[in-house]
């Protein structure tokens, strides 16, 4: 038993050591210097990045969640199979391609990037909304109907609270993906921290690479962490355990 714990600890601390070594190496080679020497530019890029992600994610939530609710209503149930398959298919198109293709419709710029990110974020949210609602025990809906609940009461009191976990997980997935895809917004001239990463690749400049890549990574990890907290706070206490199982 203690040996297993020892192995676990060794791995854990070895990883800490690798991460620490990386940062010490990067700092000692002053790879982070651009963040401070060009802090004005850095803040602009960071803000662009965050705005890109926020605007496109919010739009995607506003479209995808209602669409997922609509497609699971009995009236549209038949279309569900087709729509879900199109959604799955859409997921296989590379994010870079979605961005690139938008150039030909919308030209270069911020709107193009927002639109492409929005399109790309719809799918995970939509899929999880549908999956969450579909996974609700049909007996529960039957009980609700039998008690005389109206369709909108069933939706807001039963279906949405009990699929909140799945819907929020879809939103989290979409936002985290979005932070990564927004780093590609450079190719449509929409700025963001990707500008430094691509500059680093083109100029073979480690400083730009690290100063761009590490903040993007931290942004994704922090967003994931915060959204997990939100999930925990929002999902009804009684539904939590079941979803985890």
């Amino acid at each position: 038993m203690n040996r297993k714990k020892l192995i676990g600890n060794i791995v854990r601390y070895a990883l800490y050591a690798v991460v620490a070594a990386f940062f010490i190496w990067a700092i000692s080679n002053s790879y982070f210097d651009y963040i401070f020497s060009q802090s004005g530019t850095f803040l602009v890029l960071l803000r662009q990045h965050i705005v890109l992600v926020l605007v496109s994610s919010l739009l995607a939530i506003l479209i995808a969640v209602p669409a997922g609710i609509l497609i699971t209503r009995p009236k549209f149930k038949r279309a569900e199979w087709i729509v879900s398959n199109i959604a799955n298919l859409g997921q296989t198109i590379p994010s870079l391609a979605v961005l690139a293709l938008m150039i030909s419709f919308l030209g270069i710029g911020f709107q193009t990037a927002v639109f492409a990110l929005f399109i790309y974020s719809i799918l995970p949210i939509f899929r999880n909304t549908v999956a969450g609602i579909d996974s609700i025990d049909k007996n529960m809906i039957d009980a609700a109907k039998g008690m005389g609940m109206k369709p909108h009461q069933i939706l807001f009191r039963i279906e949405l609270p009990n699929s909140a976990y799945s819907i929020l997980a879809g939103i989290r997935t979409a936002v985290v993906l979005n932070i990564g895809t927004a780093a590609l917004a450079y190719v449509v001239g929409a700025g963001g921290l990707g500008v430094w990463i691509f500059t680093g690749i083109n100029l073979f400049d480690n400083g730009f690479l690290i100063s761009g890549a590490i903040p993007v990574t931290l942004l994704a990890i922090v967003a994931d962490f915060i959204l997990r907290r939100v999930e925990y706070a929002v999902v009804p206490k009684g539904s939590r355990r079941i979803e985890k199982a």
Binding site: A143, G146, G148, N162
Partner: peptide
């Protein structure tokens, strides 16, 4: 339905 009590096998309690 609101005037009729309804009980099913899997109790149908709402987990939320």
């Amino acid at each position: 339905r609101r005037k009729i009590g309804y009980v099913i096998q899997s109790n149908g309690l709402f987990p939320n």
